[in-house]
Amino acid sequence: MKFSAFTDQQLSSVSSMQRAAQQIKITAVEVMRCIQMELDRYPKDEQSGILSALGDDRVSLKISTPFGEGRCRLELISDGHEVCGRYVVEKAYLSEADATVWKAVWALRVSRREEVMLGDDGCWQDMYEAADLLRRAAASIIYAIAESTAA
Rank of each mutant, 00 (worst) to 15 (best):
T100V: 13
D98T: 06
H81K: 12
S16R: 15
K62V: 10
G55T: 11
I50N: 00
R58G: 00
Y93K: 02
I24G: 07
G85P: 05
K91Y: 07
Q18C: 10
A97S: 14
R73F: 13
T7I: 00
G70F: 05
F6E: 13
D45W: 05
M17K: 15
L39T: 05
S12Y: 07
Q22W: 01
S95Y: 01
D98K: 09
R58A: 12
Q10F: 06
G85C: 06
K91D: 09
T65K: 05
P66R: 03
L94C: 05
D79T: 00
L76Q: 10
V59A: 02
D40C: 08
K44C: 03
L54S: 10
L54H: 06
V29E: 14
Q22F: 09
S15E: 12
Q47K: 12
A53C: 02
S64G: 08
A53V: 08
Y93I: 02
C84M: 08
L74I: 07
G70D: 11
T7W: 01
Q18V: 14
R33G: 06
S4M: 04
A99L: 10
E46L: 10
L51P: 00
S48G: 00
S52P: 00
D98M: 12
G80S: 07
A53Y: 03
V83R: 05
G55V: 02
I26M: 05
E38C: 13
Y93V: 02
L11Q: 10
L61A: 06
W102Q: 03
V14D: 04
T7F: 01
G80Q: 06
